[in-house]
Write a protein that binds this DNA or RNA. Sequence first.
DNA 1: CAAGATATCTGTCCAGTGGTTAAATCCACT
DNA 2: AGTGGATTTAACCACTGGACAGATATCTTG
Lengths: 225, 225
Amino acid sequence: MASDSRPYHHGHLRPALIDAAVATVEDQGPAATSLRGVARRAGVSHAAATYHFGDKAGLLTAVAAEGYRRLAEALRAEDQASHSYLEIGVAYVRFAVNHRGYFEVMYRPELFHPQDPALLEARAAAASELYRGDQPDADQMATGIAAWALMHGVATLWLNGNMPPPLGDDPEAIARLVAKHLDVAVPGEPGADRLRTFSRAETLKSVAYPVFIQMTSLPSSPIRP
Amino acid sequence: MASDSRPYHHGHLRPALIDAAVATVEDQGPAATSLRGVARRAGVSHAAATYHFGDKAGLLTAVAAEGYRRLAEALRAEDQASHSYLEIGVAYVRFAVNHRGYFEVMYRPELFHPQDPALLEARAAAASELYRGDQPDADQMATGIAAWALMHGVATLWLNGNMPPPLGDDPEAIARLVAKHLDVAVPGEPGADRLRTFSRAETLKSVAYPVFIQMTSLPSSPIRP
DNA sequence: CAAGATATCTGTCCAGTGGTTAAATCCACT
DNA sequence: AGTGGATTTAACCACTGGACAGATATCTTG
């Protein structure tokens, strides 16, 4: 009832526009992504997109929110599959590379509405799905940030084309290689010496997830006034 | 001879436009930066900017090139001042934060002409200034990439407003905190066990710089076709 | 099933943008 | 003085994001 020959009502235009936006970001880059181009790609007028999302930033806000949902799902799936902290980090890089359309929007707050309730809720939902424990202390948080920053750095440098070619063209392999240099021991914590590497499942709940939930408390990006 | 009351010829329009572009990126963000806005800021018509840089991407190419020059200068100065590998990493983060107008352009190759000769030369000059040694092997390179990715991740997460507030608002302090978790030992290298931390000057030439020079060999960013 | 009411989408208009081109202005040199 | 080249402006084009009125479809409610 909605696919005869271009009916007046699309039926599922909202998700179709998000898909079109992601696809456009993926092959044109975020800078060259236009509201009208996305609408054209979906086969509707640009005003239809405005109706659903308010403005261009609103569309990209929806892209970012959906991205957080999918990132959370990917990390959760990897957790259940491998129970490996290292592999969760690798999954983060894999997500960035395989879904760069989402990823490249998610970490450019100047492109969307960083205070949008739906976006915040998607982040919070992702976090609450992952996090089930106590608040981390400062040392635990620093450890988690180190892991996150390392994987985020690998992902962004790879996406920017800044990885030295001799390292090969497999971003996941690079992530594993680099992760060997991360020391996830929490200083002063009992058993710290046997947690030197990035691969103990036990550190998962106490190190990575606390960081992820803190992420959701959003520092209301100090970027633009 | 060039500052009476708005002479027809500016005299130093090229650098003035670069400054205006950096300032605009700094307080509007890269997405909202327009060629016309930059020209207005410099007090000239947009066509004058086009004359000097060809197009908007050309202007941002010049911004990126100048950014690489300044980054190299900052890292070199820190090296001579402290001889500390850790502090060079901190200086990288400091540069990103204090000169975000440059930094945010440098790592967005979709904004400029990544193959521009002047840009490549600036990167190469920065690298040759820093690098004076042999080609690194794969292990050394992985170690350097780990350090670079970690600091790059800290810098970008901070710029994006994604650092958890409890960590404080000093990005350099966060960089030092996080760096404690980086293990710069090169596996299988003699003396690896005593290089566990991120602060030995001796590792400087053999770890950080090789990465930086490899960076200049430019993988011709696989990003956009 | 008729008749609003509502949701969804289009067409049109506006100011602003990036880019091109011709013309104007200035400067250096003879 | 005046010619030639460098620099800048002005005018134009196609496009963008956004606003709005109106068209079309769907949903209610009688």
